[in-house]
Design a binder for these strands. Sequence first.
DNA 1: ATCGATTAGCTAATCGTTTCGCTGGAGTTC
DNA 2: GAACTCCAGCGAAACGATTAGCTAATCGAT
Lengths: 333, 333
Amino acid sequence: MATMRDVAVEASVSVATVSACVSGRRFVSPELKARVERAIADLGYQPDGIARSLRTGTTDLIGLVIPDITNPFFTEFVRDVELLAKADGYATILADSNYEVATEARMLGLLRQQRVDGIILCPAGERADYNFAAWPQELPMVIVDNAWTDTPFDTITLDNVTAGADITRHILGLGHREIAMVAGPRGNHTSDQRLTGFVRAMAEAGVPPRLDFIRHGDFREAGGYAQGMALLDLPQRPSAIFVANNNMLIGVMRAIHDRGLQAPDDISVASIDDFPWAGAFRPGLTTARQPVRLFAQHALRLIRQRCVEQTLSPREQIMLKPDLIIRESVRRR
Amino acid sequence: MATMRDVAVEASVSVATVSACVSGRRFVSPELKARVERAIADLGYQPDGIARSLRTGTTDLIGLVIPDITNPFFTEFVRDVELLAKADGYATILADSNYEVATEARMLGLLRQQRVDGIILCPAGERADYNFAAWPQELPMVIVDNAWTDTPFDTITLDNVTAGADITRHILGLGHREIAMVAGPRGNHTSDQRLTGFVRAMAEAGVPPRLDFIRHGDFREAGGYAQGMALLDLPQRPSAIFVANNNMLIGVMRAIHDRGLQAPDDISVASIDDFPWAGAFRPGLTTARQPVRLFAQHALRLIRQRCVEQTLSPREQIMLKPDLIIRESVRRR
DNA sequence: ATCGATTAGCTAATCGTTTCGCTGGAGTTC
DNA sequence: GAACTCCAGCGAAACGATTAGCTAATCGAT
C-alpha cells in the first residue's frame, strides 16, 4: 500500500503538502496540486483512516447496539440509521446483543475501544444491570426504545402508555369486552408501559381486565406462541388479544392457526409495532406503528450535536406518538 | 482518557511492561503485574484500539455490504455473520447499498480506508460494473449470493438453477401446467439462473412456458406487485406463479389480495427464499430455503483463512443446495 | 573468579497521518 | 532600499499503542 510519504516523494513535495491536498484544509498552488494528484493516481494511493483517526481523535464511526436484528422494528431502525449515517459520512458498526445484557456490555466496551464517535443503544435489559457512572463523558450515547427515565443520557422512546391505550380503545370501540393481553417480560420498562396503557384504557371503559387474561411473554415468537396457546386453551377464551410486540404477534397467529381457528372470525388480534408485510397477508394486521424514521433522525442529530458542541446542553428526553394503523384483524363484535 | 503512559507512571513501570500485561504476550512478574492491574483499575484505563491497529496493521473489523437489509434473507445473513464474527472477536461494519452500484462502490472504498480485515460482499449489480483489477490483494473479500463466475474472489452462492427447477418441478408435480414466473431484473445473474431452472424444468415436463407468463420484476415488493397484477389481469391467467424472491412474493400476495382472489384456492404461489414467518400466516408459503447459516460460516472461515495464510491457496467457489419447504400455497390442480 | 546463558524490564523506533510553527521569497509602504 | 506584512511550503512533533533490541541482574558451569 502506498503511503502519503510515497506520494510526497513521487511528487517531490513534502508530506504536509500532500496532506493539505488530500484534506483540502489549506491552500495549495494549482501547480503543486496537479503534481500531487498525478502522483496519487499513479500510485493508487488511499489515505489510511486508522492513522488519520489516531491523529484527529475522530473515527467517523458510530456504534449501533440492538437486541435482535431479526425483529422488523429493529431491522427498519438499523436501515434508517445506516442510511442517514452514511449521508452524514459516518459508517455504522452493528452489534446484536441477542437480548443478553452481558453481550451488550461486551459490545459497548468494544465500541468504546474502537473509539466510535457515538453510540446508539437499544437496551436489552433493565436499569439495574448497568453501571454508567464510569461512562466516558466525551463519548455521546443515546438510548432508544427501551429507555428508563433516570439515565444521564439522551433518550428517544415511543409513548408506550398511549400506544397501549390506543390499541385497547380501538378494540373496546369495536365492542369487545373479553380482552386479553400478551405483554412482554415482567419488569421490562417498555412492556410495563404498554401494559399500563392497556389497564388504563380498560379501567376508563369500566371493564376491569381479568387477571388470567394478562400474560407475560418474552418479546419473541416462541413466547407469543406459548402465551397465545395458554389463552386459547382457557375454558372461557378472550374475544380479542392485544399483543405487545410484533414477534409475539407472529407466535400468537401461529397458535391461532394451530388450534384450527381463524382471525378475525374466531378471535380478534392487534399489536404494537408495524412491519412491512403486516398488510400483505390475510388478515391484514391492525397495529400501532412506531415512527422509526424519526427515531433514527433524532438519534443521529443528538450524536452530531454532542460531538461538536462545547458547552454541555441539557439532555433530551424525546417521546414520540404511535400511528394507529387499522386493517382487518379486529372485527366488530 | 487515560493512556498506557499514564498507567505506566501510576504503576512506576515502563509502557512496554504495561503493554505486556495487557496483551499477555510476554511474561511479567506477578508483583509488577499486580501493580499494573491496580493502576489500570484505578485509572479506568482502556486500550486504544485505533493506536493498536495502526501499529499492528489489523483492526478486527470486518465489512459487510448488502443490497437491502430489509429483505429477510439479508436480515438473517447479517444476523448470522454478526453472531459468528463476534464469537471470533471481530466487529462488523454494516453497509446497505440499497441496490445501487455507486453506493456499493463508495462503501467498499470506505471499508478499505477503515482498514477492515476482510469484506463480505453481496453485490447489488453485475460484473461489468466493477473494476477489481485494482483491488488490494492483501484485503480478502468473499462474494456471497449474487456472484458471477469470473471474479478473482472466493464466492458462495445458492445453486440457483437447482432451486428454480426444484420449485418448478414441485408445482408441475401438483398438476399445474399454466405456470408463470416473476423473475428478477433482466441480466441479473441470480435471476437468470433461477429463470434457467424454471425453463429447464418446464422443458423436461414437455410444457414450454408461455412468453407472456415470464415477467421481470426488481426483486422488491413494488415490482412483485406490478408484475403480479399484470399476470392476474391477463385474459387467461396462470394457475400458479413462481416468484423469484421473497420480497416480490409479498408484492404478488398483495396483488392477489387486491384483485379479490385467494391463494391457493384461486391461484397457487411459491418462491425462493424462506423467511421467519412464512409459515405464520394463511396460506403458509411454499419456498426454497437458502442455507443462510452455512453461507455465513463459509464466508467467515474464508476470511480468517486468507488473513493468516502465507501462501495463497486457490480461490474457492462454493455452491450450496436449497431446502424445499412445502407448506400450503401450492394446491393440487 | 570468570564466562556465557537466561531473563525481567526498559528505551526508543515505528505505524501513517495531521498540524504547529518556521522559513524565505515576493509584494507593499515609506 | 529598509522595514513590514503575507503566505506557500516544509520540517518535525504529536497521536497511543507494539515490539525489536538492549541492559543489567541472576545463576550455573567451568
